Simulated assay, not measured.
Amino acid sequence: MKIDAFSKISDISVYTLRYYDRLNILKPLRVNETNGYREYSSQQLLRVAEINSLKELGLTVKEMAHFFANDSNDAQQIREIADNQIKELRHLINQTEQQIKHIQTNLFLYNNGGINFMNGITIKHTRPFLAATLRTKYQKSSKTYDQFSENIWATLEDGIKNSGGILSSPCLTMYYSGLFLRQDDEYVDQEIVEPITSELKIDKASGISVREIPAEKVASIINNDGLENIGESGNELLKWVTENNYQISGAMREIYHMNPNDSKKLLTVELQLPIEQ
């Protein structure tokens, strides 16, 4: 077939086909000696498929010319090229995910009214934010908190990741009773919370909910020793709220601010108690 027909079938422009001819990447089956017309065979569409595959691997036209000049078409060379491409893409994915997490963290801190790393109790106003949550109860006499919480965070995080979401920091726990509030209750009623930026379709059978955490006026206290003495900080916050004639209007929020240089290391825990007068 003539070059115009082959161009339409292969989706390669006539100009590019001539360029490929000059570089010996894709030469015509024959050239008419009378009129100089290039003629191609439908079998040469297999070479077109190879060219497209090499493009996807990131080879330049000159690299393809060198590759096709080698009759053996070095398979090891192609594997190395593909492996390098995959490594580069994974690096870009990791960089992008880190950028997303950074944006999510800054968004949460904005909605959280910032964070005061100084000691003492402050009052601030939080903004609403979207979150994936898992609310559960456990009997305090039956197990420790660590035993109870071992799997619930994994359940929530897997639900988010399996739905195409990306985990962010900080995350938090909201305590309704049993810890901090109504401490004498036999059961701890809590909700673990992972902030997200968009709606996720999560399997309802998992028990995970996607909802908006409301804006609140809160009294806030910072514990720079992680979870050390967090109970004492909670009691201090409760005492301050009572002494200043505030009413508790929601669940205690325990917010985990991670070390930005080590995402697995807890840097600061902030307790927030919604209040009203």
Results as ranks from 00 to 15, higher is better:
residue 161 K to C: 08
residue 17 L to Y: 09
residue 78 I to C: 02
residue 81 I to D: 05
residue 137 K to G: 02
residue 97 E to A: 05
residue 73 N to Q: 15
residue 177 S to C: 09
residue 135 R to C: 02
residue 5 A to H: 13
residue 115 I to M: 12
residue 217 K to V: 06
residue 126 T to G: 07
residue 253 R to P: 04
residue 249 S to T: 11
residue 101 K to R: 15
residue 274 P to Q: 05
residue 211 R to P: 02
residue 246 Y to P: 03
residue 221 I to H: 00
residue 251 A to D: 10
residue 153 W to K: 10
residue 42 S to F: 14
residue 223 N to Y: 06
residue 249 S to N: 12
residue 255 I to R: 02
residue 80 E to L: 10
residue 261 N to E: 12
residue 175 Y to M: 08
residue 262 D to P: 03
residue 88 E to Q: 09
residue 56 E to N: 13
residue 142 S to Q: 13
residue 3 I to V: 11
residue 46 L to N: 09
residue 118 M to L: 14
residue 84 N to Y: 10
residue 165 G to A: 08
residue 105 T to D: 01
residue 148 F to M: 04
residue 98 Q to N: 04
residue 236 E to Q: 15
residue 110 Y to D: 06
residue 122 T to I: 11
residue 180 F to L: 03
residue 51 I to T: 07
residue 152 I to G: 03
residue 173 T to D: 00
residue 72 S to N: 12
residue 189 D to E: 14
residue 186 E to C: 03
residue 106 N to P: 01
residue 216 E to F: 00
residue 222 I to R: 00
residue 39 E to G: 02
residue 115 I to Y: 07
residue 38 R to D: 06
residue 161 K to N: 07
residue 247 Q to R: 15
residue 162 N to F: 06
residue 155 T to Y: 01
residue 123 I to L: 08
residue 23 L to M: 12
residue 276 E to G: 04
residue 75 A to D: 08
residue 7 S to A: 13
residue 8 K to R: 15
residue 255 I to K: 05
residue 144 T to Q: 03
residue 258 M to H: 08
residue 109 L to M: 14
residue 148 F to D: 06
residue 63 E to G: 13
residue 201 K to G: 05
residue 36 G to A: 05
residue 96 T to L: 12
residue 5 A to N: 13
residue 92 L to C: 02
residue 122 T to W: 01
residue 231 G to T: 15
residue 76 Q to V: 13
residue 6 F to K: 00
residue 53 S to Y: 08
residue 157 E to R: 04
residue 41 S to C: 04
residue 50 E to M: 05
residue 106 N to L: 07
residue 30 R to Y: 08
residue 164 G to E: 06
residue 133 T to W: 02
residue 113 G to A: 13
residue 210 V to L: 10
residue 165 G to K: 03
residue 187 Y to E: 11
residue 217 K to N: 09
residue 130 L to G: 00
residue 170 P to T: 13
residue 55 K to M: 12
residue 77 Q to G: 09
residue 35 N to G: 11
residue 231 G to V: 12
residue 198 S to F: 02
residue 165 G to Y: 02
residue 95 Q to H: 10
residue 12 I to Y: 04
residue 225 D to E: 15
residue 192 I to D: 04
residue 8 K to W: 09
residue 33 E to M: 04
residue 195 P to S: 07
residue 53 S to R: 09
residue 182 R to W: 03
residue 270 E to V: 13
